[in-house]
Nucleic acid binder design. Structure first.
Lengths: 246, 246
DNA sequence: ACAAAAGTGTTCCAGGTACACCCATGA
DNA sequence: TCATGGGTGTACCTGGAACACTTTTGT
């Protein structure tokens, strides 16, 4: 990675990217009944941002996005969907970028590409929290999960991007399959219900939810879980695919 | 417009736009029970394309899109929505752009901006066919409506963009208000139903449709239409807004 | 009077909600 | 055996689909 960083300091290497265009990924995970978002902290600063990246000149937009996902989480072949392109004229954050570059010994002048306006294409990913190894990238020292309700102040309009992403999920994720990527292998019906409630932002009725999920045909019931609690122990469930009938 | 064209031939003026980024608008109208799309023909060529434009360096993306809409149709304050950003690495159409520039006496070299890859943000608009005065822009001689089923071959991936736009409409347009922009002031229930069927791509049941529309509260019934046909003449309807209760 | 299309009323069914009840479990 | 929470059965409600019937109009 040290070598990659050297490349970033060399102006020539910026040329391999499309100028003025970026990708930001809202990577959503779920753990202990809380939605989590993967957030980067720029090295040696108190600046937080969404994981993002640039697009190489001969690279598909979607490919660049899945590369970001792969590099930050180690995951591939995951639900990843473009949801909106952010292009307000004032969405640059010059001060923040200067700090980032200064703290990383990157030489720049006032016309540096990173200081100018960016248009950014937003992607959402739903990933299994447990399967992710958050990996910081160039210019960032940390890459960690934050609870949705305790996300720090982010640079630019990244907070808006998150909110738009969640709105998009609410409207577009197939209810029948919501959780297929977000949950660990096995889970209880209550886990699944809490997840749906968190993303949809509303309480659901227990029994109706149960029936709807089972009727969808995507869930398979496994053995019971031993909870040690003073009540009936819940069944465990797992998502099954069409090729997985048994 | 002659003066504007001169500007385009002057390389310096390209610099006022964000490089590598464009906007394409799918402008949808409705006339005689057919969906229409506004298509441009490049001057002195047989090349057809969606109306599009570039984004000025200090201009909002959405603003640039509504500017395109305004310039090609004369309309403003119209339903206009960003639906997808197209960024395949091979979506340029070098040959077509060379023909366009040659036919317009624009000097270029192999590195010209227009010959390189573009990422394009797609917008859809629903407009009243009758209220539109299609106006060709720079480098294009014609700007005309085409029936959805007789659109000529378009440059780049513009045909895909149209198909994506229609898909987007199907999933996102509020059924209750579909037609509020597309239809002329007054219309029959059958007109409205045909429009819905065209956009949704499926037959609807006459009576159920009628009731649903009336129940929505957005329609007001006016006097009867004299058709001259050998059957009961239909009522005319009009969309009403919340501020328009009478 | 008849045909054709518009408008209205009625029935039926599916999916969703609400609620009652049973089951399992550890204190 | 009781409290707690998971799982299931049933009654009810609403919105849509299907269909019958009435109304209007020109031939």
């Amino acid at each position: 990675m040290g070598q990659e960083k050297e490349e970033y300091k060399n102006k020539a290497n910026w040329d391999k990217f499309l100028p003025g265009l970026a990708i930001d990924c809202v990577i959503v995970g779920y753990h202990e009944r809380e939605l989590k978002i993967l957030i980067m902290e720029y090295e040696n600063t108190d600046l937080y941002a969404l994981p993002g990246g640039f697009i190489e000149k001969d690279e598909d937009l979607d490919k660049a996005a899945s590369k970001v996902l792969k590099e930050r989480t180690g995951l591939k072949d995951i639900y990843l969907s473009q949801f909106h392109t952010f292009g307000r004229h004032d969405r640059s954050d010059t001060d923040a970028m200067k700090i980032v570059m200064e703290n990383n010994d990157i030489k720049y002048d006032e016309n540096h590409w990173l200081l100018r306006r960016f248009v950014s294409v937003g992607y959402v990913a739903l990933v299994d929290y447990k399967a992710v190894a958050p990996t910081p990238g160039i210019m960032s020292s940390k890459c960690t999960w934050f609870d949705l309700d305790s996300i720090p102040t982010l640079i630019q309009d990244h907070r808006e991007i998150i909110d738009e992403a969640l709105l998009y999920l609410r409207n577009h994720v197939d209810n029948k399959l919501l959780g297929a990527n977000l949950l660990v292998d096995t889970f209880t019906m209550k886990d699944l219900q809490k997840l749906h409630e968190t993303i949809l932002g509303e309480k659901l009725h227990r029994t109706g939810f149960h029936r709807k999920m089972m009727d969808s045909g995507h869930l398979k019931r496994l053995g019971k879980k031993k909870t040690g609690k003073a009540h009936r122990s819940p069944y465990l469930y797992r998502f099954v695919t069409e090729n997985d009938m048994d």
